[in-house]
Simulated assay, not measured.
Amino acid sequence: MSPQKTKELLANSLPCVVAMEGCASFHYWARTAESFGHEVKGMAPKKVKPYISNQKTDANDAVGIAVASAQLGMTFCQVKTLSQQNIQAIQTSRKWFDRATTSLGNHIRALCFEYGATIPFGKKSLRESISYFISPESSHLPIPIKQLLMILWQ
C-alpha cells in the first residue's frame, strides 16, 4: 500500500486498534494513526517474530502482528511525540558522528604511520600534526597522500 493510500485508510476507518511492529517509521505512522483517533499498539520485532509462521511475507507479518497484539502479557512501546523523536535523532546522530570522527582520525593516523609519520593520540595532536604533514614545507609524505589527507581532513 502506498503511503497516501495508508493515510486514506486510516482517515476513513472508524477508530480501532492499530497494531504495528516497531520499525524505522513506526513513530510517524503511530502519530498519524492517533491523529485519526486510532489506538496504536507498537511491538518490538523480537516480540512479534514467534507469532509469524511460514515464510516472511507482508501478509504473514500482518497475521503475526495481529496475533501478537492480542496476547496476554504482551508489552507495547510508547509512541514518541515529535519533540521526543527530534531529541532522540539528535542524540543518536551525535553518537554516530563521534564514532565516525574517531574512526576517521584513527584512519588518518594509520595512513600517516604507513609512511613513517606518527601522530600522538588526541584531537589537538591530530590537528597540529595534519597541519604540518599536509603543509608544503613537509617532506614526510608523498604529494598524492598529502592530497588524500587534505580531502579526509576537510
Rank of each mutant, 00 (worst) to 15 (best):
A110Y: 03
T92Y: 04
E8F: 01
P45H: 08
Q91M: 15
A66N: 09
A70L: 15
M74Q: 15
K95S: 08
I151S: 13
Q71W: 00
T57Q: 06
T102C: 04
I145Q: 03
L148P: 00
L104T: 12
P136R: 08
N12R: 14
S53P: 01
L111N: 03
V48L: 05
A33M: 06
E114P: 07
R31K: 09
A33N: 06
S53F: 10
V48M: 06
Q147P: 01
S25F: 01
L72S: 14
G122N: 07
T57G: 00
P120T: 08
A62H: 05
S13H: 08
P144L: 12
E34F: 02
F113H: 15
Q147L: 14
K80S: 09
S103E: 12
S125T: 03
S83Q: 15
Y51R: 01
G73M: 12
T6A: 15
Q91D: 08
P3S: 12
T92C: 02
C16I: 05
E128W: 03
I52W: 00
P120K: 13
M20W: 02
V48Q: 02
A70F: 06
G22R: 05
V40K: 02
V79A: 03
I65N: 01
C77M: 13
K146V: 00
S125G: 00
G122Y: 10
I151D: 13
Q154D: 13
Q84T: 05
E8R: 08
K7C: 13
W153I: 02
N60P: 06
V79H: 04
F26R: 07
K41R: 15
L149K: 10
S139I: 12
K49A: 11
P45D: 00
G22N: 08
G116A: 09
P120M: 03
K47H: 13
L152D: 04
S139G: 15
I108N: 02
K7N: 09
I87A: 11
N106Y: 05
S2A: 07
K123G: 13
K41A: 03
T81N: 05
L152M: 14
G22S: 15
E21K: 03
Q91F: 04
R31D: 10
F97T: 06
Q85I: 08
K5H: 12
H27S: 09
L148S: 05
A33S: 08
I130T: 00
G73T: 10
K5S: 12
Q78F: 13
M1C: 11
S129C: 11
V18L: 02
R127S: 08
G122L: 08
N54V: 04
E8Q: 13
C77E: 07
A19N: 00
P144H: 09
I90Q: 09
R127F: 06
A70V: 01
F36Q: 02
V63S: 01
P144R: 04
L141T: 06
D98I: 14
W153T: 04
Q91I: 02
F97D: 01
A30L: 06
Q55M: 05
K46S: 12
L10W: 00
L10H: 05
Q154H: 13
G122V: 05
P50T: 07
M150N: 10
S125V: 00
Q84D: 10
G37N: 07
I65R: 00
W29Y: 11
S25K: 14
S69E: 02
V67E: 10
S13I: 03
